[in-house]
Amino acid sequence: MSAATVLERPAVAPHQHPDLADREDVRPAGRRLGPGPRRRLAWLLGPSALLLLWTVSSGTGLLDPRVLSEPWTVVVTAGELIADGRLQENLAVSAQRALLGLIFGTVVGAVLALVAGLSRVGEALIDGPVQIKRAIPGLALIPLLILWFGIDETMKVLTITLGVFVPVYLQTYAGLRGIDLRYVELAQTVRLSRASFIRRVVLPGALPGFFLGLRFAVTGAWVSLVVVEQINATSGIGYMMELARTYGQTNIIVLGLAVYGILGLLSDGTVRLIERKALSWQRTLAG
């Protein structure tokens, strides 16, 4: 038999067959245990339901506006704040803090995970301290950070960074250590250099863990942001809300919450989108 005999394949892939559309398609009944194919925009369903519930309970008077402002009041408030520029200004400041902290934290977490995951010395030096840091709540560090760095931006970004790097480190490290030893053996048999080994085996193998960590980190970044902005700030969404509290402006507080919520949802969605693109080789329940 020659190699050519093995080659034979149908010229048209079955699912692309032109006149398949009007053929009968009867299949045996069977139960699907996975969640089924992905539907576009389906992720909007949950948040929309929540919004609807809020609107209905406000409209029917079930919800006292002094407890929680009506959605339309919040929309009007948003319009006013955008008109006088306060919302954009504070949002820009908040977003910058969160983003900087996220970037620094992600880089630090990923690099530490690589060093700890690839060398025993790194593991011995890095893993212990990170586990200790993990046991200390981020909030508990703020007094010390204020003493060291004052109350300006450095302290705020640093607080966020410290909150971000831990989940990125933990998940990336776990992903890296979970790489199947068989692939490492393969890399040895094809004589990969250390650099190629990291690039072709370690990094892609650790990527699912990294993305998991990144999603925790994004949420964590917003949480840390709220904390630093409400404790000590003269700008940002948290400051805007804190100011509103002293004047009893529930609508602005709720607007702030809504902004945080939307930002959180958008950033998580972005990470998931990147994740799906980067991990398209994976065949999992997520689909």
Binding site: Y183, R200, P204
Partner: peptide
């Protein structure tokens, strides 16, 4: 050549062959 094909799941067929 191993009993399992041992292809890197995160690399394409071509990527797997060019490895190294």
């Amino acid at each position: 050549v191993f009993q399992d094909s041992r292809l890197l799941p995160w690399d394409t067929v071509l990527g797997n062959v060019t490895l190294g």
